[in-house]
Simulated assay, not measured.
Amino acid sequence: MTHATTGPAVGFLYPGYSAEDDYPRIEEMLAAGVRLPLIHTDIGEDAHRVDALLEMGSAARLAAGVQELKSRGAQAVVWACTSASFVFGWEGAREQVRELSETAALPASSTSFAFAHAIQALGAERVAIAATYPEDVAEHFTAFLKAAGAEVVAMRGSGIITAAEVGTWGQEEVLELARAGDHPDAQVVLLPDTALHTAAYLVDLEAQLGKPVLTANQVTVWEGLRLLDRTVSRPNLGTLFTKG
């Protein structure tokens, strides 16, 4: 199988196989001539557990996919994983991205920083977290966002251990997660798992909650476009993509 290598492209390092089909879906929804090549990284143990997540996000696991992304024309690279970036803490996650950028010789970021930057882009201060993870893992995301300057007014964990299970969730489960995690004081609701299919539900999520919703695969693509200094306005991808 051959892949196109011309034109603007953001490369994604995606752990395992759960909701990776959100990326070609978003590429189609963008209709902006930007390619979103994706490489699967070896996740080791599929577990939303801090020790497993630290190994999943190790420099060696990320570095393994970089050359293939570059061969497919990637001009920036994003580690498409929230939990295996925020578990390192703010400074550790910065180091993870710095090492990835150095290895790739390209601009780099991760889904955790994508959330931080997207919250800022929306001009929001107070957020609610509707997480699939166990609460002890979700608490690490709360700490990460606080380091980014956001106020977390509510955090709900769902106790799901594996990305594989999260990847089976459909629209009703995703909408229920968002509703359960919302809070009247929250200006934005965050769904921080790249294993969760959300691309097809963004408009419905925001209609149900009556406020912006940021989901992991959505913000990851937005962050990649930001690294390329490209702005694409697409209301079908949520409020975040109407800022252009």
Rank of each mutant, 00 (worst) to 15 (best):
A104H: 13
V174Q: 02
T162D: 00
E151Y: 00
Q67D: 15
A118H: 13
S58H: 11
S58Q: 12
V97Y: 05
D185S: 07
A148F: 09
S71V: 09
R179K: 11
T82F: 03
V77H: 11
A178W: 05
S112K: 15
G57C: 09
H183R: 08
G92S: 03
A163P: 02
Y133R: 05
A52G: 08
A148D: 03
F113E: 02
G65W: 14
A138W: 02
T132S: 07
Q120L: 00
E135M: 11
V166Q: 01
A52T: 08
D185G: 04
A148C: 05
S101L: 08
L62K: 04
V166I: 10
L190S: 06
G170W: 00
T162F: 06
V166T: 02
F144R: 11
A104R: 12
E95Y: 11
A105F: 12
L53F: 04
F115P: 08
F115N: 05
V66Y: 14
A114N: 00
A52M: 07
S112M: 06
A154S: 12
S158Y: 06
A63S: 11
F113Y: 11
L69H: 08
A124H: 07
V137F: 12
A150Q: 06
E173W: 09
S83W: 06
G89C: 11
V189W: 09
R94C: 00
G149E: 07
I119F: 09
Q96H: 15
R156Y: 09
V66I: 10
G123C: 11
K70W: 13
A164G: 02
G123Q: 09
S101N: 06
S58I: 01
T162Y: 07
R98K: 14
E55N: 07
L191E: 06
L122H: 11
L69E: 04
T82S: 05
G65F: 15
A138P: 13
A128D: 02
Q96L: 09
V189T: 01
A74L: 12
F88K: 15
L177V: 00
L106P: 13
A121M: 08
L106R: 01
V174Y: 03
E68M: 12
L106V: 08
L106Y: 10
H140Q: 13
